[in-house]
Amino acid sequence: MNEFLFIVVPYVCLTTFVVGHVWRYRYDKFGWTTRSSQLYESRLLRIGSPLFHFGMLGVVGGHVIGLLVPQSWTNAVGISEHTYHVVAVAGGLLAGVAALVGMVILIYRRRTVGPVFSATTRMDKVMYAFLAIVITLGMWNTIAGSIMTIGGEYNYREGVSVWYRSFLAFQPDASLMAQAPLGFQLHALFAFGLFALWPFTRLVHVFSAPVGYLTRPYIVYRTRDEQLGSHRPRRGWDRISP
């Protein structure tokens, strides 16, 4: 069972994530967009979206450090267990709360603002469900696990993180995950579920974060030849209801 949950499922999700993005990029560039809803409503978006996104960027950054940097490395540069813990919990809490509050505003806006709600696809709803579960579980793990230490202290850097790196190295060790508290297990599983959904939602916009804007010349010139003529790529599967 553990093998299935912490080896098979994650790999299936990861494969879907990678193959899905390649497929979508090739066949549905036209559907690859944030599908901004600011035209309909901007008062709530102005608060919710930056809160959510800046929070989320912090959360992502935190995960990269927490999951990918082994404990031995931070120890080696002289960061004590305790210092790391305090910084991680404080930063995680800050980013997490921002993301959570932002998300609540965004979901509230999606549901209550008429035009935004009618522009919400089924996939948007599924995505928000997963996103909400993952973020809430993540916050729970931080608060319950690291601050209130409900059910004993758990150092994820000796469990989940090691499993995650073993997973990425294609030598997965499911037992590490099996020993983790339920909150962590669920958080990881739902997160992989979200990854599997990712390429089929608007979340693809994350991969086109426009960092190139900082360096490219302002005005882009292109010749006529580069175009494809009258050929239009087929529409994406995430049809926008008319």
Binding site: K29, T33, S36, Q38, G212, Y213, Y221, R222, R224, P233
Partner: peptide, 27 residues
């Protein structure tokens, strides 16, 4: 202003167009 560089000016005739495949909706 386009972060993705999807809006371009055609070299031949100067017509300004939005590449629908490159636009990412940053508005």
């Amino acid at each position: 202003s386009c972060p993705s560089g999807a809006i371009y000016k055609r070299v031949e005739d100067g017509i300004v167009l939005v590449d629908q495949d490159k636009c990412r909706g940053w508005r």
